[in-house]
Simulated scan of single mutants.
Amino acid sequence: MISPIHALLMARYNHWQNGLLYEAADALDDKQRNEDRGAFFGSLHTTLAHILWADRVWMNRFAGTPATVLSDDQGKGLAYQDWQTLKTDRATFDETILGWAHDLDEAWLEADFTWWNTTRTRKSTQPAWRLVAHFFNHQTHHRGQAHALLTAFGSATESTDLLVTPADVS
């Protein structure tokens, strides 16, 4: 089982890594960010949008933040198409995740958690700690894809290693 301290570390890591990726992606133009490069979600922009979309889905389930809608289409919908809005929304939502992680407790993580899939066709129950681990793993997985896309454009970010997360990240 993961602990509240682990979740907070991962929220801090998420915040730090997103800042680095968005800074590197900001140096590209819209055409480059939106070019289909064969990633699972096609482009760098859509990959980053998907991460935010999924974070919003899970935070709605975990903390009751505003829900996404089907037309958001896993980050491909209209709400995610403008680069400046995506950057601002990402930074703001990282603060939401940090606040949630600061308030997590062992009892919540140890309990079973029941949720519906995004189309509300399947209800599932698993231990909350496992879902929180999935939440952070999903971010890391797709950020790795975004990092590879940036590298292919000749762009680079700082290290992506968890162990070098700066101590001063919220």
Score class of each variant (00 low, 15 high):
residue 97 I to N: 08
residue 140 T to E: 04
residue 69 V to S: 10
residue 57 V to K: 08
residue 5 I to P: 03
residue 111 A to E: 15
residue 127 P to N: 07
residue 36 D to S: 11
residue 119 T to Y: 00
residue 150 L to N: 01
residue 143 R to F: 01
residue 156 A to F: 04
residue 39 A to P: 04
residue 155 S to C: 00
residue 8 L to I: 12
residue 73 D to E: 13
residue 84 Q to F: 03
residue 70 L to N: 14
residue 88 T to L: 03
residue 126 Q to L: 06
residue 77 G to A: 14
residue 31 K to V: 09
residue 89 D to W: 12
residue 45 H to F: 01
residue 13 Y to Q: 10
residue 126 Q to P: 02
residue 137 N to W: 00
residue 7 A to F: 14
residue 170 S to W: 03
residue 7 A to T: 07
residue 140 T to D: 04
residue 161 D to P: 00
residue 59 M to Y: 11
residue 139 Q to M: 02
residue 29 D to T: 13
residue 77 G to S: 13
residue 28 L to S: 06
residue 5 I to W: 12
residue 100 W to I: 01
residue 152 A to G: 09
residue 1 M to A: 14
residue 131 L to H: 02
residue 95 E to P: 04
residue 62 F to L: 03
residue 10 M to N: 07
residue 125 T to V: 09
residue 55 D to Y: 00
residue 67 A to F: 06
residue 105 D to H: 12
residue 78 L to Y: 11
residue 53 W to V: 02
residue 140 T to A: 04
residue 108 W to V: 09
residue 112 D to E: 14
residue 41 F to V: 02
residue 113 F to E: 10
residue 118 T to A: 11
residue 163 L to M: 13
residue 76 K to L: 07
residue 152 A to D: 14
residue 75 G to S: 08
residue 35 E to C: 11
residue 131 L to Q: 03
residue 115 W to P: 09
residue 14 N to Y: 05
residue 49 A to S: 15
residue 122 R to I: 02
residue 83 W to T: 09
residue 52 L to K: 05
residue 131 L to I: 07
residue 96 T to A: 14
residue 79 A to S: 13
residue 164 V to T: 06
residue 5 I to F: 12
residue 59 M to T: 06
residue 21 L to V: 11
residue 37 R to G: 15
residue 34 N to Y: 14
residue 81 Q to D: 15
residue 85 T to A: 14
residue 7 A to R: 01
residue 25 A to I: 02
residue 160 T to C: 11
residue 143 R to H: 01
residue 13 Y to N: 12
residue 85 T to R: 15
residue 28 L to Q: 06
residue 28 L to N: 07
residue 117 N to R: 07
residue 51 I to M: 09
residue 146 A to C: 01
residue 69 V to L: 08
residue 143 R to T: 04
residue 163 L to S: 12
residue 54 A to C: 02
residue 139 Q to H: 10
residue 134 H to L: 13
residue 120 R to Y: 06
residue 119 T to N: 01
residue 167 A to E: 06
residue 102 H to T: 14
residue 65 T to Q: 03
residue 117 N to D: 08
residue 79 A to W: 07
residue 3 S to Q: 07
residue 128 A to D: 04
residue 56 R to D: 00
